[in-house]
Design a binder for these strands. Structure first.
Length: 287
DNA sequence: TTATTCGGAAATTAAAAACA
DNA sequence: GTTTTTAATTTCCGAATAAT
């Protein structure tokens, strides 16, 4: 490799090409340009405190943290401008939040909603920054879990939201908005995954819980459409999986199927889940 | 095919921090 | 004092694009 010249001429510097450092340089001669070295080099090296950039990044992360957003919204500061991009908001979904929501889900909700594979999901959560699909699943799941009675906002923050009435709903709403925004940034319908249809299902659950029936219905229909798109309504689809995986997928299919049928009659969610449980037991007994 | 542009990796440099 | 770490700045590689 050739060594870098001590100083590149003004034209080579501007053109970002290798300069031989003489006057006139080879590039200027070839291009018939007057070769000058007038630019005054800037002083290199850090200016001021070295930790300046790190502190700026930390401060930005602190401001975008979920707890700070919840706090400002609860103080009546209204909706903060959402990010102009569709990328996940840095620092919004903390590992602590995911951990505690998964814990709650598998402890209290999994028995009536036997979908998702705990170990697999925890494994995926480790690499959440590499997959928008996983990110949306986790934000929607956390949003859904936070609306459940008995769930408290994980205390990850300097604001201590756990004793604040309504903090759960505000936190859930922010995560719901985050899911919707980030989801716009990728084509989850191109090749639907189990994650994306579970995301639609959790969005349905959130909207149902906050009594936005139309949006709930829309997301439930989206989930059932996705499940048809990946062929889970056909028995042959299940043959490629082992018995555990195929039964897990069947449960998801029937949960959606039963929920859609009953919600279309505006039956309360608990009855829907009960019906599903009855169905589960019946189908287990039949097997 | 050749010339030009330009994103960004790698190298260079110097200030700040750490250490003896 | 010296050494190490870090950040600002520069050079210029090479991919993309434009011109011929």
């Amino acid at each position: 490799m050739t060594t870098a010249v001590k100083r590149a001429c003004d034209a080579c510097h501007r053109r970002k090409v290798k300069c031989d450092g003489i006057n006139p340089c080879r590039n200027c001669s070839a291009s018939q340009l007057s070769c000058t070295y007038n630019a005054i080099p800037q002083k290199k090296g850090p200016k001021g405190s070295r930790a300046k950039v790190i502190n700026e990044l930390k401060e930005k992360e602190r401001q975008t943290s979920l707890s700070a957003k919840v706090q400002s919204r609860m103080n009546g500061m209204g909706a903060q401008p959402t990010s102009p991009t569709l990328a996940p908001t840095a620092g919004l979904l903390t590992t602590d939040m995911v951990k505690q929501c998964l814990e709650f889900f598998f402890a209290h909700m999994y028995p009536t909603m036997p979908i998702l594979h705990r170990q697999r999901l925890e494994q995926q959560a480790l690499y959440v920054d590499q997959s928008l699909d996983t990110y949306c699943l986790l934000t929607s799941l956390c949003a859904f879990v936070l609306l459940q009675p008995g769930m408290t906002v994980p205390g990850t923050d300097p604001f201590s939201l756990d004793n604040m009435p309504g903090a759960n709903i505000v936190t859930s709403t922010l995560l719901l908005e985050e899911t919707i925004r980030v989801r716009k940034g990728y084509d989850y319908m191109d090749s639907p995954t189990l994650n994306s249809l579970c995301t639609s299902y959790f969005l349905y659950g959130c909207y149902y819980a906050i009594d936005l029936q139309d949006k709930a219905w829309f997301n439930l229909r989206e989930a059932t459409t996705l499940i048809h798109m990946i062929g889970m309504n056909k028995e042959t689809t299940y043959m490629q999986y082992d018995s555990i995986e195929s039964s897990r997928r069947r449960r998801l299919y029937w949960l959606l199927f039963v929920t859609e049928r009953y919600v279309s009659d505006r039956t309360p969610l608990t009855s829907t889940v009960n019906s599903f449980l009855v169905f589960s037991r019946c189908s287990a007994a039949a097997r």
